[in-house]
Amino acid sequence: MFKTQRESSEFLQEFMPKLEQTPPEREVVLCVPFTDLGVMSKNLHNSRVQLGAQNIHWADEGAFTGEISGPMLTELGLRYVVVGHSERRQYFGETDKTVNQRLLAAQRHGLIPILCVGETKQQRDAGEAESHISQQLVEGLVDVDQQQLVIAYEPIWAIGTGDTCEATEANRIMGLIRSQLKVADVPIQYGGSVKPANIDQIMAQPEIDGVLVGGASLDPGGFARIVNYQ
């Protein structure tokens, strides 16, 4: 929940020129607050940057005050939507069942959902990380088309805490996630205190296809360094 429309436009003015040397095969996606989607859609039209939302409701319309629907998002030319982010699960009662409903709604409207999974510090300390993530995948992916899917592994204990998940450990967990999928080449991203200082090490891991960047994406220079990892 950052950046007004004005601040979003200022961000793009500084960020977009830094992508001129970015390899063309790298996909760059900005998942912004709902109020920024309109102005971002106009500013990113015909650019190399794709636009995404931070949530989607399972119904196309109805008495769901404060939610947003697939048709509202697709009208703005979106391609992606984040589903089941750890903060939605932690603060807003998201469950694996509602995550599944949102995933299906996204795909029904031609959006590619970015499914977030991951464990808390308590679950990790109890040795339950693998079983918890496995359960999130089993329940979340019912009837989901894995050809139109991105998965993001968020070690919740490493987000904004100063604790870091070693790149090799993230790689191990992501290998376990991949082993549970029916489609082997689903893009799997890492999300957990990604920053310019650790991006090169993270992206050197064989199972990591990309990153889901939180706070470090707010600075256009720093985020461009992440996009232009070596």
Rank of each mutant, 00 (worst) to 15 (best):
Q135E: 15
N100R: 10
A152Y: 03
D219N: 15
E75H: 09
L115C: 09
Q54R: 07
G222A: 06
Q148H: 15
S69Q: 06
G191H: 04
D219K: 14
P17N: 12
K97W: 08
A184C: 03
G127D: 11
N43Y: 01
A197E: 15
Q146K: 06
A53T: 09
Q230H: 15
I156L: 09
R172G: 04
P155D: 11
D145S: 14
G118W: 06
T161E: 11
V144H: 10
T22V: 15
G66E: 07
D209G: 12
H109G: 09
Q189S: 01
F64M: 10
P71M: 07
E75Y: 02
F223E: 07
Y80L: 07
H45W: 02
H57W: 12
V142A: 10
Q147C: 08
V117A: 02
K182Q: 14
T4C: 10
R6L: 11
K182V: 10
L73W: 05
R172K: 09
H45F: 08
H45A: 15
L111C: 12
E119V: 09
Q50R: 13
R48E: 13
M1Q: 09
H132K: 12
G192Q: 04
L103E: 04
L103K: 04
A170K: 00
I202L: 13
G77M: 03
S179V: 00
L104W: 01
